[in-house]
Design a binder for these strands. Structure first.
Lengths: 333, 333
DNA sequence: GTGAAAGCGCTAACAT
DNA sequence: ATGTTAGCGCTTTCAC
């Protein structure tokens, strides 16, 4: 930086001011500085800048796992938003473990990030005390704990559940099975609520809710066990993308044809659902907007907004495809 | 850190030495230091440490996009490996654009990373000069440019192609269509080579190679156009996961039943391929091992290894499922 | 083996 | 509007 200053014949403070745009500088000087910086391929040293300044240009994002495309899509959309503003992103995953979550957030905090975004591993979100005592702004995504002091961005989970159930009910389904990962997650519970309410409003039997765990293997195993009994739901709503895959797998193993024998609505909409055979009707979360909103929250905290925590709830959309149809006529036995 | 030093009644230098393990310290003092640090919830300040030390504990990883599960799975496996050693990861994506790649790598370099891993956006990999002039160790993953001075980790693309073709040929297919994104990528070309050689060795007609672009939409459109002519391949090898989805979509639109009318082998193996109907036979890349190997390369460079660049080539595996079978008997016309 | 002291490259007061 | 200066919190010689 001293080199740039010398070359532009100004002080290093001026270089700093020009490059950071933090102070107004005469355009003639600014020009010289920019040119000198370009000539020397000068790049500011983030470490030094971070050390000295109050706030650097990094933030962290923590998700339960990088193997779930929902979370990585979220990271991608956040990245698109933040990149333009010159911020860099530290990414960490928790392997679905609370202790790891604390460890990772703690490590992130050592970088004095300008903020951190987190999809909590559990509803406890015990790590939030770390964030709060450090005074770092944070925004919670997707899974929302109670008593959060940070901003919150999520989709309308109850509304998504309702959408799925209403679609099925409109087609004449009266016996709906709900397959979810864990009811210990508030967003999953909200989706169930939406389905339940829609069933009630539609005058349809209360849906059965099956908790099948978080890994693909668990889903398949427990669902198969449940379906072994002579049960007759005519439709299934799967509450996550993993659950959707598990359901598909089991249905095909049991030769339960979709949609002829049973209809299926998935959650989280991915390309493979559209090209699958049959293509899968799904509830789509507005991932791109969630990412943008999260970044906007962080931005305004950076800019010093002292407003009370935001609670942003974004609507889901139903993508109707081939996996849902009017239930087969069943002879009364 | 001064607080910790005071509490442990040693100098800050000793604290630094104990905590970094860079120098041998009497165990009595070390003990006191650790205790003091724990009592105060002390966390080293990465910015200061990075500024003063020669090498900090961050590295960068740059991929073409975070929307492709292949790349994010790679990141996940690298993260698992690096986390244990206390390294943090800066993640960046290039939106499949060379200029963005340069910009992102340049930004990463401002953090003085201990190294950077990159899946180049193109075979040019023009950004490598940035890396090389900065003297930062780097490892290139998956897509391999020529003249690289850094380490290289990739799968045996030619072998993967061969595996796919041999499987098909063994089933009696003689007319194979290859659907790839771009031949401008060396790994795609290598896969084609493998297929071609296997066809030749198997005494089977030279495969047709169709270049369909990088997005899902392009794939679908160009493939559909090509299949509009009365062509009769009995099998398709799709060279990426996006290509695989595109092929599935088109095949189902044209009512070309898999595997009855046409067999399909995909590349990159994901859960949805296993639960799809029919399940998709695929070439699986050893992603976990690729990530581990890449980290091992970086580790040894960190430890000062001056050995010539590694060229690590990992074998692919064929997962046989329902999408491939003996071709239908065709009446000679 | 341990401590004292000198910066790393920048930013933020403050002075001009 | 620009320059001067004093650190940010560590690591690293270099004495002891």
């Amino acid at each position: 930086m001293a080199d740039v200053a010398r070359r532009a014949r100004v002080s290093s403070a001026t270089v700093s001011n020009v490059l950071s745009g933090r102070k107004v500088v005469a355009s003639a000087l600014a020009e010289r500085v920019h040119k000198a910086a370009a000539d020397l391929d000068y790049q500011i040293d983030r470490a030094a800048s971070l050390l000295r300044g109050k706030r650097g240009k990094v933030f962290g994002i923590v998700v339960p796992t990088l193997e779930n495309p929902f979370f990585t899509a979220l990271i991608a959309s956040v990245e698109r938003a933040a990149q333009d503003d010159g911020y860099d992103i530290l990414v960490a995953s928790t392997a679905d473990d609370d202790a790891t979550e604390r460890a990772r957030i703690s490590a992130l905090l050592a970088w004095r990030p300008i903020g951190v975004m987190v999809v909590p591993t559990s509803d406890e979100f015990s790590s939030r005390t770390l964030l709060e005592t450090s005074g770092t702004p944070y925004v919670v995504l997707d899974r929302v704990a109670t008593g959060i002091r940070g901003d919150v961005v999520q989709c309308d989970n109850e509304g998504g559940g309702r959408l799925a159930a209403q679609h099925l009910i409109a087609q004449g389904h009266e016996d709906i099975l709900v397959v979810g990962s864990t009811l210990s997650l508030a967003n999953i519970r909200a989706r169930c609520d939406g389905i339940r309410k829609a069933c009630q409003a539609g005058g349809v039997r209360r849906p059965t809710i099956l908790e099948v765990g978080i890994t693909f293997e668990d889903v398949a195993e427990r669902l198969k066990a449940w379906l072994a009994a002579p049960r007759r739901p005519t439709a299934i709503v799967a509450l996550t993308n993993f659950a959707t895959m598990g359901v598909m797998s089991v249905l095909s193993q049991l030769s339960l044809l979709v949609p002829d024998r049973i209809s299926l609505v998935g959650f989280d909409d991915y390309t493979w659902m559209a090209v699958s055979n049959p293509s899968i009707t799904a509830i789509r979360q507005p991932i791109e907007i969630m990412g943008r909103s999260a970044w906007d929250c962080l931005r305004s905290r950076i800019d010093g907004a002292k407003t009370p925590p935001n609670r942003i709830v974004l609507p889901c959309r139903l993508e109707v495809r081939q996996s849902t149809r009017r239930p087969m006529e069943v002879s009364v036995s």
